[in-house]
C-alpha cells in the first residue's frame, strides 16, 4: 500500500515541505524545489514593489497547478496581522491553506502561543485549513488540534538555527497524542536531522534555510529528499531496541575447532 501524507483531505507522496526564501534567484529556487521532490511549497505574502516594476514573480517559476502553495504569515507579530495576511493570501487565489506563524520574539523567532491560538480560532471559523507553527509544546499542540487545525507544526529548534532536533522527547509526546499530522517546522540543519524527525514518527518536515543556506542548495535539497524518505522507511520498518551489550550477527553453531 502506498504510504501517503494526508492533510485536510489532500494526499501527497512527498513528506518534505520546503520554503522559498533566501535563494539567490527564482531559477535557483525552482531547481532546489525540483531536487527536493517537495509537493507542498510555502511562500510569504508581501507588498508588490510599485517603484521597481518587477517583471517576474516567484509563481512564474513554481506553477501552482503542479505545486500545492502554502502561504505563510511569516513576519506577523499579532493575531490581527496574521489573520489579515491569511485573508490576503486566500484572495490572491492559491487556495485556503495557511501556515500560521505569529512570532513572539525577534531574536529567537519563537511563536507567541496565545496569539497563535487566537488567530487559529478566527481562521478556522473563516474556513481556512490552518497549519500552525508552534513550540515543541504538547499542550499548545493539543489546544490547536482541538480548535480545528488540520496539522500542527512544532519547531525542532529556532528558525534558521540549524540546531537539529533539540527535544525529541517533547516531539514524541506530541506524536503520541496528535490525531492530525505532526510536521517538524524549523531548526533542521542537515540531512540526519530530517531523518531523525522522520524516525521519531513525524508525518513530514518543513525546512527552508537548511537547503537555501547550504553551499550547494540543489545538492542539499536532494540530500533532504533522501533523508526524509530514509527516515520515514526506518520509522515504518521499526528500529531495533538499543542494548548495552553486543549481540553477535553470525551464528555460533558450526564454528571450526
Amino acid at each position: 500500500m502506498e504510504d501517503l501524507l494526508r492533510i485536510a483531505g489532500r494526499t501527497f507522496r512527498s513528506r518534505l515541505i520546503v520554503g522559498t526564501g533566501k535563494y539567490r534567484s527564482f531559477e535557483e529556487t525552482r531547481r532546489a524545489v525540483e531536487a527536493s521532490g517537495a509537493e507542498i511549497v510555502t511562500v510569504a505574502v508581501r507588498r508588490v514593489n510599485i517603484t521597481s516594476r518587477e517583471t517576474e514573480n516567484l509563481l512564474d517559476y513554481l506553477d501552482p497547478n503542479r505545486f500545492w502553495i502554502l502561504p505563510n504569515t511569516a513576519g506577523c507579530y499579532t493575531a490581527e496581522e496574521a489573520v489579515r495576511t491569511a485573508h490576503l493570501a486566500r484572495e490572491a487565489g492559491v487556495g485556503n491553506w495557511v501556515k500560521l506563524e505569529v512570532i513572539g520574539d525577534e531574536k529567537t523567532l519563537f511563536p507567541n502561543v496565545s496569539a497563535t491560538i487566537e488567530a487559529a480560532r478566527i481562521l478556522v471559523r473563516d474556513g481556512f485549513a490552518v497549519l500552525p507553527y508552534i513550540n515543541d509544546d504538547p499542550v499548545a499542540a493539543r489546544v490547536l488540534e482541538e480548535l480545528g487545525c488540520v496539522a500542527v507544526m512544532p519547531l525542532a529548534a529556532p528558525i534558521g538555527s540549524g540546531l537539529g532536533i533539540r527535544n525529541p522527547y517533547n516531539l514524541r509526546i506530541i506524536l503520541e497524542h496528535a490525531r492530525v499530522p505532526v510536521i517538524v517546522d524549523a531548526g533542521v540543519g542537515t540531512a540526519s536531522d530530517a531523518a531523525v524527525a522522520m524516525e521519531l514518527g513525524c508525518d513530514a518536515v518543513l525546512m527552508n534555510t537548511a537547503i537555501a543556506g547550504a553551499r550547494d542548495p540543489i545538492l542539499m535539497a536532494e540530500a533532504m529528499r533522501l533523508a526524509v524518505e530514509a527516515g520515514r522507511k526506518a520509522f515504518l520498518a521499526g528500529r531495533i531496541p538499543r542494548k548495552l551489550y553486543a549481540s553477535a550477527s553470525s551464528p555460533l553453531d558450526g564454528l571450526v575447532d
Binding site: G21, T42, I50, I69, N72, V94
Partner: peptide
Amino acid sequence: IEIVHFVGGG
C-alpha cells in the same frame, strides 16, 4: 491601498 503578492519565504 495595499497590493500584495507572493514572495520567497519559509
